[in-house]
């Protein structure tokens, strides 16, 4: 289906889907961080409960899923076409890219995708279909203790390393992707583009540090 769209349309879809996915990242990170600020994990579990039961969020979940699929399919199609556009490679590889991580979008994207599957199996599937202990807080509220699931997983050093590496790659992916999305949408302006680029980099760093801090804090404490 994506083959019949023009290259520019595909890029626009990529960027819209990408920007949409970053909004998900922000929400996800904010909720995750709750685990660090509340040792009882009540805030985190409450938020997780809210996300899992709110009808609006539940609907949104499908949109999100659709966004992922679009981003992945279009990304793959673009990449395959790009490989096909240069059947004979250069003997001496070029390195003129000005957005460094642009070279590795398919690689970082692929690893983040693998991470996503594992991540899905570890959390989403367990939370949705598996059995998670419920916990009743002094406030009287009872939530499934998803926070414990997190804490337990991050006791495993190998997993923490895998997690940290995957998030780092996600950060690289974001660093190029964020400003690139604006360019693809035609939003390039001598006054605002430097800001968008700076913001994109800061945003990627913040997201990366935020996500990485959680397993590190849990593992070392």
């Amino acid at each position: 289906m994506s083959l019949k769209y023009s290259s520019v349309t595909k890029k626009i879809v990529m960027s819209l889907a990408g920007l949409f996915l970053t909004s998900f990242l922000v929400v996800h990170l904010l909720i995750n961080l709750l685990i660090l600020f509340d040792p009882t994990r009540e805030l985190f579990n409450e938020a997780a409960h809210f996300m899992a039961t709110n009808p609006l969020i539940q609907t949104f979940q499908y949109v999100l899923f659709f966004g992922f699929i679009l981003h992945i399919i279009f990304g793959l199609v673009l990449q395959i076409q790009n490989w096909m556009a240069r059947p004979v490679r250069y003997e001496k590889k070029g390195s003129s890219e000005q957005s460094y991580f642009s070279k590795f979008m398919i690689h970082t994207g692929a690893i983040v995708f693998i991470f996503l599957i594992i991540h899905f199996a570890n959390f989403f599937v367990k939370a949705k279909f598996g059995h998670v202990e419920a916990l009743t807080y002094p406030s009287g509220a009872t939530y499934e203790d998803l926070g414990m699931l997190v804490v337990n997983l991050f006791q495993d050093g190998a997993y923490v390393i895998f997690y940290v590496v995957a998030i780092l790659l996600l950060g690289f992916h974001l660093d190029h992707g964020f400003q690139s999305a604006f360019q693809s949408l035609g939003l390039n302006h001598s006054r605002y583009t430097p800001f968008i680029k700076l913001f994109g980099t800061l945003f990627s760093v913040a997201i990366t540090l935020g996500f990485i801090s959680i397993p590190l804090v849990i593992y070392f404490s």
């Binding site: 673009l78 000005q98 957005s99 690139s180």
Partner: peptide, 9 residues
């Protein structure tokens, strides 16, 4: 031709 991935090369 390939697609633009905003590498700016």
């Amino acid at each position: 031709f390939g697609n633009c991935t905003n590498t700016y090369a």
